[in-house]
Simulated scan of single mutants.
Amino acid sequence: MEIVGTGFLARNLRPLADSYPDTVALAAGVSWASGTSAADFAREAELLRRTARRCAAEGLRLMFFSTAATGMYGLAEGPGREDGPVTPCTPYGAHKLALEGLLRDTGADHLILRLGHLVGPDQPEHQLLPTLLRQLREGTIRIQRGAARDLIDVTDVVTVVDRLLALDLRAETVNVASGAAIPVEEIVDHLQHSLGLAAERVYQYAGRQHDISIEKLRALVPQVERMGFGPDYYRRILDNFTAGTGTRV
Rank of each mutant, 00 (worst) to 15 (best):
A94F: 08
V224L: 00
E2S: 06
I3T: 07
I214C: 07
V249W: 13
Q223E: 15
F64S: 06
G107W: 12
I212S: 04
A28L: 13
A68N: 02
L62S: 06
F41M: 10
L103K: 10
A108F: 10
R145P: 04
T51D: 05
A171F: 06
D189M: 06
V224Y: 01
Q144H: 09
P222N: 10
L165N: 04
T173C: 13
M1Y: 10
H190Y: 14
A25K: 03
A180Y: 00
G80F: 00
R145L: 10
D18W: 06
P85W: 10
V174D: 01
L169C: 01
Y233E: 04
Q204K: 13
P15I: 08
Q192L: 07
W32Y: 11
S178D: 01
L48W: 04
K216M: 04
G107A: 07
H95I: 09
A42H: 13
D156T: 07
L115H: 11
D150K: 03
G146P: 12
L217D: 04
A68W: 05
V119H: 00
I141G: 03
A25M: 15
R236K: 08
D156G: 02
L164R: 06
S34E: 14
I152Q: 05
D18H: 13
E225D: 13
T159R: 11
A206T: 13
L129Y: 03
Q204I: 09
Y234V: 02
R142A: 10
A56R: 15
A98Q: 08
R61C: 05
L97Q: 11
V119T: 10
I152P: 01
R49T: 11
D40A: 15
A42D: 13
L113A: 07
L217C: 08
I214S: 07
G246A: 12
R163T: 01
C89W: 02
A17R: 15
E225Y: 09
S34T: 14
V30Y: 11
K216I: 06
S178Y: 00
L197A: 03
A177Q: 06
E225A: 15
T67V: 01
G228K: 02
H193R: 14
A45D: 05
L220F: 04
A57Y: 00
E138N: 14
R11D: 11
G196E: 07
C89R: 11
G179N: 05
G5C: 02
G71S: 06
T131W: 05
L26K: 09
K216W: 02
S19V: 12
A69I: 10
E200F: 09
Y234H: 08
L220C: 02
A177I: 07
R53E: 15
